[in-house]
Amino acid sequence: MPIGRRERAKQDKRERIMTAARELFAEHGVDRVTTQQVARRADVAIGTLYLYASTKAELLIMVQNEKFAAAVDSGLAAANAAVGQGALEPVIALIRPVVECVREHIENGRTYLCELVFGDPAEPYRQAGLALAGRLEDGITGLLSRNEYIDAADAATLARVITAIIHISTTATVCLHRSDEAVLADIRDQIHATLAPHIRAA
């Protein structure tokens, strides 16, 4: 059904706020952006902005959730194309766009992941971000479950370990100045070492 004028106006304001936040975070990093700057660029009152996101952290989560969702979609498609290449390659295909997404602007990516882990899980934007993280974990579980040497229970546990590896490797200070390829290579080595005992034992 066609939406009303008021709803269209709300959607327009939300899109302007999202666009302004996305641009400013990309240009300056989350630490050097204020909600007032976002409101000015979006051409809305600061009170209006707070109707859509009550904090700068929520603005960042809104923006990063869109990017994270696209990265997970891309990774799942790549993983399906790599099925049949052993246990490791489909998982790497899945996580590659996720790692690249988080590291696109490292400060923003680190802050985003920390907000998801340590922020209020009942906050709606965080709930959406955590659901995306769950979708990534479920995708890894599904890939590992296809391997004849890994049972379903182990696949779920291993997926949690792998997501922890991704989180640490993309946010740790020691990794900040490494290239994406170097970080992905390190993650590959860690996942290989994690999966190898299960495959050998079988």
Rank of each mutant, 00 (worst) to 15 (best):
L143K: 01
G86D: 04
P2D: 11
N65D: 01
M62W: 10
I46G: 14
E107S: 15
K10W: 13
M1W: 06
L176E: 15
E148L: 06
G84K: 02
R41N: 03
A79E: 03
A185F: 04
E27Y: 07
L136H: 02
T173D: 15
D73T: 07
L51K: 08
T194V: 12
A81C: 01
M1E: 05
L113T: 02
F118H: 15
P124D: 10
L88V: 03
S179P: 07
E115Y: 11
L184A: 04
Q36M: 12
L76M: 11
Q36P: 04
E66V: 05
E137C: 09
A164T: 14
L94K: 01
R6L: 07
D138F: 06
N80C: 04
A26L: 10
I150Y: 01
E148A: 11
A164H: 04
A122K: 06
A69S: 07
T19Y: 05
T48W: 09
V102W: 13
D12M: 08
T48V: 13
N108L: 15
L132C: 04
T48C: 11
M1C: 08
E27K: 15
Q37Y: 08
A70W: 00
T55R: 09
I61D: 02
Q37W: 09
H105V: 15
S74E: 09
T35E: 11
A26C: 03
A122Q: 10
A82E: 11
L136G: 04
D73F: 04
V38Q: 04
E7H: 13
F118I: 00
T55D: 07
I106R: 14
R14V: 09
I61H: 01
N147F: 08
R6M: 06
F118E: 11
M1T: 07
L49D: 04
A164P: 00
A69K: 07
L158C: 01
L184G: 02
D151G: 03
E107A: 15
